[in-house]
Simulated scan of single mutants.
Amino acid sequence: MKQINLGATSLKIPAMGLGIMRMEAKTPAEAAKVLDTAYDCGINYIDSADIYGQGKSEEVFGKALKLAKVNREDLFVQSKVGIIIDPARSHGSFVFGGRYEFTKQHILDAVDGVLKRMGTDYLDAVLLHRPDPLMDLEGIKAAFDILQASGKVRFFGVSNFNPQQFQMVQDSITQRLMFNQLQFGLMHTGMVDFGINTNISNADGTDHDGGLLDFCRRKHVTIQAWSPFQYGNFEGTFINNPDYPELNKELKKLADKYGVGKNAVAAAWILKHPAQIQMIMGTMTPAHITDSAKGADIDLSNQEWYDLYLAAGHQLP
Rank of each mutant, 00 (worst) to 15 (best):
Asn5His: 12
Asn5Thr: 09
Leu6Glu: 10
Ala8Ile: 01
Ala8Asn: 10
Thr9Asp: 12
Ser10His: 13
Ser10Gly: 12
Leu11Pro: 02
Ile13Ser: 09
Ala15Val: 07
Met16Ile: 13
Gly17Trp: 07
Gly19His: 05
Ile20Phe: 01
Glu24His: 01
Ala31Cys: 05
Ala31Pro: 09
Lys33Ala: 13
Lys33Asp: 11
Leu35Val: 08
Thr37Asp: 09
Thr37Tyr: 07
Ala38Pro: 09
Asp40Arg: 12
Cys41Met: 14
Cys41Ala: 13
Ile43Tyr: 12
Asp47Glu: 10
Asp50Trp: 00
Asp50Gly: 04
Ile51Trp: 01
Tyr52Glu: 01
Tyr52Trp: 02
Gln54His: 00
Gln54Pro: 00
Gly55Ala: 08
Gly55Lys: 02
Lys56Ile: 02
Ser57His: 00
Glu58Gln: 09
Glu58Asp: 06
Val60Thr: 08
Phe61Thr: 01
Phe61Arg: 01
Gly62Asp: 03
Lys63Pro: 00
Lys63Ser: 03
Val70Gln: 11
Val70Thr: 13
Arg72Met: 08
Glu73Thr: 12
Val77Ser: 06
Ser79Thr: 09
Gly82Phe: 11
Ile84Phe: 13
Ile84Lys: 14
Ile84Leu: 15
Ala88Ile: 13
Ala88Gly: 07
Ala88Val: 14
Arg89Pro: 10
Ser90Met: 09
Gly92Asp: 14
Phe94Tyr: 15
Val95Tyr: 07
Gly97Ile: 13
Gly97Gln: 15
Gly97Asn: 15
Gly98Asp: 14
Arg99Ser: 15
Glu101Phe: 14
Phe102Pro: 10
Gln105Phe: 12
Gln105Ser: 15
Gln105Arg: 15
Ile107Gln: 06
Leu108Glu: 14
Asp109Pro: 04
Asp112Leu: 03
Asp112Arg: 03
Gly113Cys: 01
Leu115Tyr: 03
Lys116Phe: 00
Lys116Gln: 05
Met118Tyr: 02
Gly119Lys: 04
Gly119Phe: 04
Gly119Ala: 00
Leu123Ser: 02
Ala125Arg: 02
Ala125Trp: 07
Leu127Glu: 11
Leu127Gly: 04
His129Leu: 13
